[in-house]
């Protein structure tokens, strides 16, 4: 006698998995809800609710240090994004044409920043820059960010590149196009959604980074996360929540944008 009764759908469900899943989702989101919620707290003590106010946002947005840190963060993120997307596009195209050993080596280099503990990468870069006399600050942070933004920029571009039917290139060559026209008229436009998605991901990764920026900031290179860290260290007020909420909002908007671009099937 078979136990397989009822619909196939219910058979796929294992006991408590649904409940556990909902609890895990709550675990993932409730902390963020508290960050956002207390940013409207009128009390200086974050967790003791006194009333609703927008005052912290006003205070945060008019704070010169925060404005400067935000500008630094944006400068780093924009330049790091452009550089990493450029290098990643080249890598995506180049990887396909490499011999196996070269590809393995390149792939290890690309993925290393994702696996190696960030602290090692951070102090290693610091030591390297001090040794070869690269001044610490916004430019130093940008260079370091490019290294770990590349894998995030690369993966969507590579996925896109792999989805292109090889006979498309052959058709273009057959119709009279050689290397450069094919790249400009065929490959690049077809890669565009991947490039945009990769750029958005690289941008958030750079914008949100704390540890590497913290070690490479030097005087005047303070980025927003580094500034938030010092706020948390000094005095926790709902102001911290307000800046954090703004940063969360930027991340959320960008990751949603990237998600929609990757989902949308234009062709």
């Amino acid at each position: 006698m078979s136990r397989a009764r009822g619909t196939g759908e219910s058979l796929k469900n294992f006991p408590f998995f649904g409940v556990i899943s909902i609890i895990v989702f709550a675990f993932l989101y409730v902390p963020l809800v508290f960050v956002v919620g207390y940013s409207f707290n009128a009390n200086r003590v974050v967790t003791v609710w006194k009333g609703f106010t927008f005052d912290w946002y006003a205070e945060v947005l008019t704070n010169n240090d925060i404005q400067r840190a935000l500008m630094n963060s944006l400068r780093v993120a924009v330049v790091a994004t452009m550089m990493s997307v450029l290098l990643a596009t080249g890598l995506a195209v180049g990887l396909i044409r490499m011999v196996r050993a070269g590809r393995t080596f390149a792939w290890s280099l690309i993925m290393a920043p994702l696996i190696i503990p960030e602290i090692v990468f951070a102090i290693g870069t610091l030591a390297l820059f001090v040794q070869i006399r690269v001044p610490l600050g916004v430019e130093a942070i940008t260079l370091a960010h490019v290294a770990f933004c590349i894998p995030f920029a690369l993966l969507p571009i590579r996925a896109r590149l792999r989805s292109i039917d090889l006979s498309i290139y052959e058709a273009a060559a057959d119709l009279g196009a050689n290397e450069w026209p094919i790249f400009r008229r065929i490959t690049l436009p077809l890669l565009m959604p991947g490039i945009v998605a990769g750029a958005l991901l690289a941008f958030i990764i750079s914008l949100d980074d704390f540890l590497v920026s913290y070690f490479l900031a030097g005087p005047g290179g303070t980025t927003l996360p580094v500034y938030i860290f010092s706020m948390i260290r000094n005095a926790i007020t709902p102001g911290v929540n307000a800046v954090s909420t703004l940063l969360l909002l930027i991340s959320l908007l960008i990751v949603t944008g990237s998600y929609l671009i990757t989902r949308r099937r234009r062709y």
């Binding site: 052959e170 273009a172 060559a173 057959d174 009279g176 196009a177 008229r185 077809l190 234009r266 062709y267």
Partner: peptide, 28 residues
């Protein structure tokens, strides 16, 4: 080389350029 031969191919998969209109495909 391929791109200089006065020979053209209709591919089994058609290999149309998905990001171009029909007219642009023909014009390419």
């Amino acid at each position: 080389p391929v791109w200089k031969r006065r020979v053209n191919t209709v591919f089994q998969s058609y290999a149309l350029f998905p990001h171009m209109t029909v007219a642009h495909n023909v014009a390419f």
